[in-house]
Amino acid sequence: MQKYRYCLTIILLIYSASAFALPEITITIRDHLFYPSEVLVPSGQKIKLVFINQDPTPEEIDSFELNREKVVFGNAKANVYIGPLEEGEYHFFGEFHPSSAVGKVIVISPEAYANAY
């Protein structure tokens, strides 16, 4: 029993460590708009996008290019992991407000990313 506990602890630690180490970008949803609407990320790296919905109504983040689909409930937050991605632009939108809630992830080389920040 003790052996299994150790194994489980190690698995959880490894899982948590990888999650904590990921670069994180926060995008706020307010009045059915994304802030910022464009985010720069480095290529070849996994990224954690944190969506914070400040509206009382839910929003569904959808991206055909990123192959992601996630509901963010009203006054709540949600995480979406993307990448590693090749350089380019990847659009995403709010499925419930597709005309206003639009944004894009711009993937640039790690060197360009380092220069930008």
Binding site: A19, R68, E69, Y81, I82, G83, P84, L85, E86
Partner: peptide, 14 residues
């Protein structure tokens, strides 16, 4: 597969 990649339970090879 897509759902597990979204929550980082599975790697995304592109």
């Amino acid at each position: 597969v897509l759902l597990l990649q979204q929550i980082d339970w599975l790697a995304d090879p592109g």
